[in-house]
Amino acid sequence: MKVTLWGTRGSLASPGAETARYGGNTSCVEVRGDAGTILVVDAGSGIRRLGRAVPRDIHRLDILLTHLHMDHIQGLGFFAPLYWDDVEVHIWGPASVTLGLRERLQRYLSPPLFPVRLRDLDCRLTLHEVTRDEVEIGEFHVRASFICHPGPTVGYRIADSRAAVAYMSDHEPALAWGNGPGSPEWTSGYDVAEGVDLLIHDAQYTADEYAERIGWGHSAIDDTVTFALHTGARRLVPYHHDPSHDDEQLDRMTAHAREAAASSCEVLPGCEGATVTI
């Protein structure tokens, strides 16, 4: 499978010369299988460019939303395939305790926030509420599991017959740690990330920044590395970069992560446009 990062930024799109290498678009990752299945994970502003890379003759697309914070859905209305009437689009995401996925999405995809309503999209749209599901989509086996972040939020584990990738864009496992990660049974997200070939994980803060933002739902880069090592991930992409971090800062954080991970886990820079084949 090929995994492409179309948006790596967290919280707010941050375009500019100072973020050109790591990118300014918000969360969106494409997982494309050998048989042509395309999974779009999160629909931040990066999804707009992905729309131009989708083959026009595709019959089905699946969009997996981790949660419905704005930086993860703001690109939906700009994703071209949603306006193709010959395409079947499936959107997967968590409901809340009181609102279904459709009602939650309609809060954004309706005036005054957006001129086009969910029901007016041209594609053949199906919504799926995710709980702790395991489903088969094309050649992929997809598992969702709720993880530590404010509001209903899932991480996804996507596997084919040869490899697995875990996507946990917004995740603060350290909130449920004592003095470091405990047993797998008590580690948020362990079942999603265990032994994956590629872990794409929240690394929004430095350790100093995290100390001022505990409970906000995001991770310090040090905790991200600890989580990767604890779960046995082979490769790690630090992700969901803070809008205030420029390329030089992210270079330093990536280097720090590489040093911390040593030879146990390969750390790849979370740059927009990068493709990893696993």
């Binding site: 599991s145 530590c148 449920a176 049974e185 580690t187």
Partner: peptide
């Protein structure tokens, strides 16, 4: 034993405080 649900994990953490 598999991983506990996030609700139980957070409850345990809360209880510990």
């Amino acid at each position: 034993m598999g991983q506990q649900g996030i609700e139980v994990i957070l409850l345990r953490q809360l209880a510990s405080y």
